[in-house]
Design a protein around this nucleic acid. Structure first.
Length: 891
RNA sequence: GGGCGAUUAGCUCAGCUGGUUAGAGUGCACGGUUCACAUCCGUGAGGUCACUGGUUCGAAUCCAGUAUCGCCCACCA
């Protein structure tokens, strides 16, 4: 038999060196995948994760979701639940095309030069190169997802789900095709959703332009005009009216007359509409229905013609006369120049305005009139709202329920078509007569659903779906839907959907709407939203700012456990957090602390190990009680989705209770003269078993270090691990019994040790010197139990000898302290001359003063609950006794 | 223009449904080579809980208002 000793183990835990090997062992053990059959009576726990963009490398924002989801799944796996975590990536059509366009650009190609087919071939090739990156990074962080079920939103299963979903929406009249003004990115050359149209406050200019009034013969009156204010002179060619407010006295006489459009000479009716803000600009607005959302509505109200003057690249088209062919921003100054030359540019002023830019490329978004596919969202939103309102799906933190509800209430129809190539093509076919056939068959329809023309005469829609359409199906499409598969039956609906609050609308809302409609149930019962990870100084990490911390670099330096712990310990649902190197280093120190505690335990094993003998001593009973408490708390916190509380609580338990106090006491017991081999064995077993219990509790958050230590404990003696060779598959512990007496006794001991150390330090006594101490026990009962306590007090406070002085009080001037165990004072002449370092007396006096004031207040005694009054009375009594024993006076 | 959140030690943050003299980590100061760990151990300093009112026997905690910061939504061109 080989014996492991401390010497065999390095004093520092080298996370980066051991983590990959541990992950490999987990993989080989098959621990990540659910059992073939659900365990009898097991509860279900299924994670819905946000599939990251296939194109992007993982950043620390992703590390948060990997960490939180992994910790939940590991916890529930240990609980014996029927767990599943399906990993995967999103095809991110617009983002992927953006990246690929750049790549092929470097190769001298463009989208147009390649054509759709070759472009898509190139895209799949690109996917082969990048698809594995995210998965690799997730694994490095320890993600215990079921990789055998890994999915991609462009795989066949997703494609089928998309077709079926859309067909059902179409059949239910929840999808339609129609003309509408949509957000258009001239650079990406596609429609984007409202959410992708990011508003920015920017400095612009407001120009005042004269539109001459029309004379009866239709010619412009050189001496009469109406001045409009605009920020977009280049859309002038699309004007079809001038609007003023109906109550605006300045213009009342003009309503009903006509103005002449500069350059083109078109006659524009002057109309009255409430939409116009009298105080803004000149109070007169040019109405351009094809290029402004407001104007479009005004146009609808007044039956105005719609004139589109921009092409898909945002260049002026042939309707722009002499300016045709110019880019919108090239045209602007030229138009202004000409207007100025004509004397019709009345003036300009700086103007702060909100401008929409494409989330992906930053180009100013152009409202564009086109025929698009829409999903009718109102009926879907109604249900999605109800599910949250009635609690069938809860959102954490709860205040996001309001945000969610507000968005749902004001929802617009969802323009789902994208004029891109990389994505799921909309399964709609047009026949020459204009009929639309939507089919969910992979090969498309056999014939026009309306007139029966054969498939050969039909042409498929070229638009693809918004990426979020397929993501919206994720919780069930990844489980085999629309087929009634075993996975779907077993794992749907899912349990916790964990993601960042920034995609609440993009993704969560869509999953709710589509899930409820398509599966007739909520896709998950809990939405857990985490915050954004910011860097040093609180700035959001972004590539352009160059402050992105690569999780893999962190992992290499500090270990995945450290990153996971740092992220978890300072996460608060829905709130942003700052990730600093100091935090990560602190977490790394914690894993090192665990490692060294294990080194001690392993090295301290008596050899040979006798059979444990005797009753559990005070430190053993105490740590068992503390472990019971830590277990109960950790369990509750994980059930309540309080990962930060869980991490923090165990950090304290492991570091403070177990290492600082229990192991220190255990050392003394193991080395105590006169201890029998059986007693030593008993103490060691407690130390080792408690360590094992702590590892179980910590495993979800620091899986690697705990697994590594577990392995060594198991090798040392399988009895320590209950014969469970791998911690990842070990069971979550049940909390043991609390021991109130041991809790109190050790709490008193700790207080006394601290107080005496405090006295020493305050008296300026050298750290290494042994100082005589006198102790007067609080009472006879304490006196009888004091022997054990003093055994620990002596070395821990470095006091010797300790003399019992029952009934005595501290001589005046002696550094003294008191607590539950009684009074203690340093017996040392020169110490007495030093200042009283404890401050204990002042503390007690202040406490008594406050409580007496409180209890002397008749209103408090009369109105506060009796239990509270009673508790305060008992407290003041306790403090009085302590003070009396300390000073020798009857206080 | 609406709405939401935040404001607690130098820094990063806990503090649940109101009830000891408000905590932790980190930083700082001082002291430590006793054989788990200096990525460590011990001791200490440091906070009128943003401000003003109110409710209450009692408020960091509940209510109202104010200020500052942040975020989300929104059709003044």
């Amino acid at each position: 038999m080989t014996t492991t000793t401390r010497r065999d183990l390095p004093t520092r835990y080298d996370a980066a060196a051991v983590e990959p090997g541990i992950y490999q062992r987990w993989l080989e053990s098959g621990a990540f995948a659910p059992a073939a059959e659900p365990p009898a009576g097991a509860e279900r726990f299924v994670i819905t994760m946000p599939p990251p963009n296939v194109t992007g490398a993982l950043h620390n924002g992703h590390a948060v979701f990997v960490t939180l989801e992994d910790l939940l799944i590991r916890y529930h796996r240990m609980r014996g639940d029927d767990t599943l975590w399906v990993p995967g990536v999103d095809h991110a059509s617009i983002a992927a095309q953006f990246v690929l366009d750049r790549i092929i650009g470097e190769e001298g190609e463009t989208r147009a030069s390649l054509g759709r087919e070759r472009y898509l071939e190139r895209m799949w090739q690109f996917m082969d190169e990048t698809r594995g990156v995210i998965g690799h990074q997730m694994r490095r962080l320890g993600a215990s997802a079921d990789w055998s079920r890994e999915r991609f939103t462009m795989d066949d299963g997703s494609a089928r789900a998309v077709r079926v979903a859309f067909k059902r929406l179409w059949d239910a009249d929840l999808a339609y095709r129609g003309e509408a003004l949509v957000n258009w990115c001239p650079r990406c050359r596609t429609t984007i959703s409202d959410l992708e149209n990011v508003k920015h406050e920017e400095a612009g200019t407001l120009w005042r332009i004269r539109y001459h009034l029309a004379r009866p013969d239709g010619s412009p009156d050189p001496d009469a005009w109406i001045t409009v204010a605009t920020t977009r002179p280049e859309t002038i060619f699309g004007d079809t009216a001038v609007a003023v407010h109906p109550d605006d006295e300045r213009y009342r006489a003009l309503v009903g007359r006509e103005a002449i459009l500069p350059f083109l000479g078109r006659r524009l009716p002057i109309i009255a509409d409430d939409h116009v803000e009298r105080a803004f600009g000149t109070g007169a607005v040019k109405i351009t229905p094809a290029h402004d959302f407001d104007d479009y509505e005004v146009g609808q109200r007044h039956g105005l013609p719609i004139v589109n003057v921009l092409d898909e690249d945002a260049r002026l088209n042939d309707d722009a006369g002499e300016f045709a062919g110019l880019d919108r921003y090239e045209a602007r100054p030229r138009i202004l120049e000409r207007l100025s030359a004509m004397g019709d540019l009345e003036g300009e002023e700086p103007h702060q305005m909100v401008i929409g830019r494409c989330e992906r490329c930053g180009t100013v978004v152009e409202p564009r009139l086109s025929i698009q596919w829409f999903v009718r969202t109102e009926p879907l939103a109604e249900r999605a709202m109800a599910s949250v309102r009635n609690g069938r799906t809860r959102i954490i933190p709860p205040h996001f329920e309001k945000v969610y509800a507000h968005w749902m209430e004001n929802i617009h129809d969802w323009a789902v078509g994208r004029q891109l190539w990389w994505g799921h093509r909309i399964p709609a076919w047009y026949c020459p007569d204009g009929h639309i056939t939507v089919s969910d068959a992979e090969e498309g329809p056999d014939a026009c659903a309306t007139c029966g023309r054969p498939a050969t005469e039909l042409t498929q829609e070229t638009d693809i779906f918004d990426t979020w359409f397929s993501s919206g199906l994720w919780p069930f499409s990844t489980l085999g839907w629309p087929d009634d598969t075993p996975d779907y039956r077993r794992f749907y609906p899912t349990s916790v959907m964990e993601t960042g609050y920034d995609i609440l609308f993009f993704w969560v809302a869509r999953m709710m709407m589509l899930g409820l409609f398509l599966t007739d149930g909520e896709p998950f019962h809990t939405v857990f939203l985490h915050g954004i990870v910011r860097g040093e100084g609180g700035v959001k990490m972004s590539k352009t700012k160059g402050n992105v911390v690569d999780p893999l670099e962190v992992v290499e330096e500090f270990g995945a456990d450290a990153l996971r712990f740092a992220l978890t310990a300072s996460t608060s649902p829905g709130s942003d957090q700052r990730l600093t190197e100091a935090k990560i280093a602190g977490a790394r120190n914690f894993t090192n602390k665990l490692w060294n505690a294990a080194r001690f335990v392993i090295g301290a094993r008596p050899d040979p190990l006798a059979a444990p003998a005797g009753e559990l001593g005070l430190p053993e009973r105490w740590i068992a009680s503390r472990l019971a408490d830590a277990t109960a708390r950790a369990t509750r916190q994980l059930d309540d989705l309080d990962p930060a509380g869980y991490a923090g609580g165990l950090h304290d338990f492991a570091w403070s209770d177990y290492c600082d106090w229990f192991l220190e006491m255990a050392k003394l017991e193991l080395r105590r003269d006169g201890a029998s081999d059986g007693e030593r064995a008993r103490v060691w077993w407690t130390a080792a078993r408690t360590l094992a219990g702590t590892l179980r509790l910590l495993h979800p958050i620091v899986p690697f270090a705990t697994e590594e230590i577990w392995t060594r404990l198991h090798a040392l003696d399988p009895a320590l691990t209950d014969g469970e060779p791998l911690l990842i598959s070990a069971h979550w512990p049940q909390p043991g019994e609390r021991d109130a007496l041991a809790d109190a006794q050790v709490a008193d001991l700790i207080e006394l040790v601290r107080s005496v150390r405090n006295l020493r330090s305050g008296a300026g006594l050298p750290a290494g010197e042994w100082i005589p101490l006198a102790v007067a026990p609080a009472d006879d009962a304490t006196a009888r139990g004091l022997e054990t306590a003093l055994r620990f007090l002596e070395p821990m406070a470095r006091v010797r000898p300790i003399t019992l002085r029952s009934g005595e009080t501290a001589p005046s001037g002696a550094p003294a302290t008191t607590g539950g165990l009684g009074v203690a004072w340093l017996e040392r002449a020169e110490a007495a001359t030093e200042r009283d370092g404890s401050g204990r007396e002042a503390y007690l006096r202040e406490g008594i003063r406050r409580l007496e004031a409180l209890l002397g207040d008749a209103r408090f005694v009369e109105r506060a609950p009796p239990t509270v009054v009673e508790r305060e009375r008992a407290r003041v009594e306790e403090l009085r006794i302590q003070l009396a024993s300390l000073t020798g006076n009857d206080a």
